[in-house]
């Protein structure tokens, strides 16, 4: 499979602040890649660099073989962008907003109108076509924003937190739209999100912390590194139980969160449950499947500041 994105040591500074250290990234054509990480990790900067909206301080990147600095127009022709903030003009109707976006993308005349009509039909927006966008709910406005990015059938969609602030119904609608886009046009999708469950179906997850890539693999492989299950432990005896689990060889990784301790459990669960059952000072002990959220905590904590609790 050919590469949609290739970044080598891509970095950006804002004055003395290193927003992105040096991103190494290869995104195969047609794949879906989640860019995850805490606020300020460099996700938006990475996306703006790849979208040609920011020039790199160091390194280079190519989108479908086009350099993001030297050949911006060629890159932009193949891109669809969704920013963190919704870019829908409240004074215009939904149809006018989409027509504006289609023309910005270079579609003219009948082609633009046909693309808008088709997109509104696909996204269920036809009923709101003549409605001023300011009268729409946040969910519909965001859906219109995502539809806007797909009007010209881009080969690559870059979406910066496309579902932020949406209810589950509209989040589902946004992902259904993106899935359909991938299925029908083979569009490559690079997205960021703080709803980590949304990244579970992705082909790959790239985790950033403080401007550096701290993990880059398929979600299943990243989860497997922590263990099949996670033990959530709360109470004054949590530290002691975590040490005991390590001593038993059952806990592969032990993390401290705001509410207690999470331990990545591997091997037989019975000895773990037995040990926890007899441990003093435990207010809550739960075993559950490992998620990307656990990977997030594990990988970002080990690259965090000193004032953030270190892994035990």
């Amino acid at each position: 499979m050919s590469s949609a994105i290739e970044a080598e040591g891509l970095g950006r500074d804002y004055g003395s602040v290193r927003a992105l250290e040096g991103l190494e990234l290869v995104v195969p054509h047609g794949s879906a890649v989640g860019l995850l990480g805490p606020n300020g990790a460099g996700k938006t900067t990475a996306m703006l660099l790849l979208a040609t909206l920011l020039s790199p301080t160091r390194g280079s990147a190519r989108v479908f073989g086009h350099d993001v600095v030297r050949d911006r127009r060629a890159v932009r022709r193949r891109l669809g962008l969704v920013f963190q903030e919704t870019t829908v003009d409240g004074l215009l109707t939904v149809e006018e907003n989409l027509l504006f976006a289609a023309r910005l993308a270079g579609l003219g005349g009948r082609l633009a109108r046909a693309a808008v009509s088709d997109a509104m039909g696909r996204a269920g927006l036809a009923q709101h076509a003549r409605q001023p966008a300011r009268e729409l709910s946040g969910g519909w406005r965001r859906l219109a924003d995502v539809v806007r990015a797909t009007l010209h059938q881009p080969d690559l969609l870059i979406l910066d937190e496309p579902t932020v602030g949406l209810d589950p119904e509209h989040r589902d609608a946004v992902w259904a739209l993106l899935d359909a886009q991938r299925r029908t046009h083979g569009t490559t999708v690079l997205f960021s999100t703080h709803y980590l469950a949304e990244a579970e179906p992705a082909d790959r997850v790239v985790l950033l912390a403080r401007g550096r890539v701290v993990a880059d693999d398929a979600p299943g492989a990243l989860r497997a590194e922590l263990g099949e299950e996670i033990a959530e432990i709360e109470g004054p005896g949590a530290d002691r139980l975590a040490r005991a689990l390590r001593g038993l060889g059952a806990a592969r990784v032990v993390l401290r969160t705001g509410r207690g301790i999470r331990a990545g459990i591997t091997g037989q669960r019975e000895p773990v449950v037995e040990l926890a059952g007899g441990a003093p000072g435990i207010e809550r002990f739960t075993l559950r499947p490992t998620t990307l959220e656990d990977v997030y905590f594990a990988r970002t904590q080990s690259h965090a500041d000193a004032d953030v609790p270190e892994p035990v």
């Binding site: 003009d89 004074l91 215009l92 006018e96 027509l99 504006f100 976006a101 289609a102 023309r103 910005l104 993308a105 270079g106 579609l107 003219g108 633009a112």
Partner: peptide, 20 residues
Amino acid sequence: MSAWSTVHGIVARDLSRATR
């Protein structure tokens, strides 16, 4: 064609905004 479509889109939007 592409640049003209962009100019057209911006003019149409700005005039719609102005009249509203």
